[in-house]
Computed example of a mutant assay.
Amino acid sequence: MQENLQSIPEIGFRTAVVLQAELWDLLRFPNKDSLNSYVGLAPHMVGSGDHEKIKFGGNRKKKQLHYLLIKASWRAVRFNVEYRTRYGAMLAKGACPQQAISIIAKKLLLAVRAVWLQKRNFVELLPRTK
Results as ranks from 00 to 15, higher is better:
residue 2 Q to T: 14
residue 4 N to A: 10
residue 7 S to F: 07
residue 8 I to N: 00
residue 10 E to P: 03
residue 13 F to C: 03
residue 14 R to M: 07
residue 19 L to F: 14
residue 19 L to N: 06
residue 21 A to N: 11
residue 21 A to W: 10
residue 23 L to K: 04
residue 24 W to Y: 12
residue 25 D to C: 12
residue 25 D to R: 13
residue 26 L to Q: 10
residue 26 L to Y: 10
residue 26 L to R: 08
residue 27 L to V: 07
residue 32 K to V: 03
residue 32 K to R: 08
residue 34 S to A: 08
residue 35 L to V: 14
residue 35 L to E: 02
residue 38 Y to W: 05
residue 38 Y to H: 11
residue 39 V to T: 04
residue 39 V to C: 00
residue 40 G to T: 02
residue 41 L to T: 01
residue 41 L to M: 01
residue 44 H to D: 05
residue 45 M to F: 10
residue 47 G to H: 12
residue 48 S to F: 11
residue 49 G to K: 10
residue 51 H to S: 07
residue 54 I to F: 06
residue 54 I to S: 13
residue 60 R to C: 02
residue 61 K to E: 00
residue 62 K to E: 06
residue 65 L to A: 14
residue 69 L to Q: 03
residue 70 I to W: 08
residue 72 A to K: 15
residue 72 A to H: 13
residue 74 W to N: 01
residue 75 R to C: 14
residue 75 R to K: 14
residue 77 V to K: 02
residue 77 V to F: 03
residue 77 V to E: 00
residue 80 N to M: 06
residue 82 E to Y: 07
residue 82 E to A: 09
residue 83 Y to F: 15
residue 83 Y to T: 04
residue 83 Y to W: 05
residue 84 R to I: 00
residue 85 T to A: 05
residue 86 R to S: 03
residue 87 Y to T: 01
residue 88 G to A: 11
residue 88 G to F: 05
residue 89 A to I: 00
residue 95 A to I: 10
residue 96 C to K: 14
residue 96 C to A: 11
residue 97 P to Q: 01
residue 99 Q to C: 12
residue 99 Q to P: 09
residue 100 A to N: 11
residue 100 A to Y: 01
residue 102 S to T: 09
residue 102 S to W: 00
residue 102 S to I: 05
residue 102 S to P: 05
residue 103 I to S: 06
residue 104 I to K: 05
residue 105 A to P: 11
residue 105 A to H: 02
residue 105 A to C: 10
residue 107 K to C: 04
residue 107 K to N: 08
residue 112 V to T: 03
residue 112 V to F: 01
residue 112 V to D: 12
residue 112 V to I: 15
residue 112 V to N: 13
residue 114 A to C: 15
residue 114 A to F: 08
residue 116 W to T: 15
residue 116 W to R: 07
residue 121 N to P: 05
residue 123 V to G: 09
residue 125 L to T: 13
residue 125 L to R: 11
residue 128 R to Y: 08
residue 130 K to N: 06
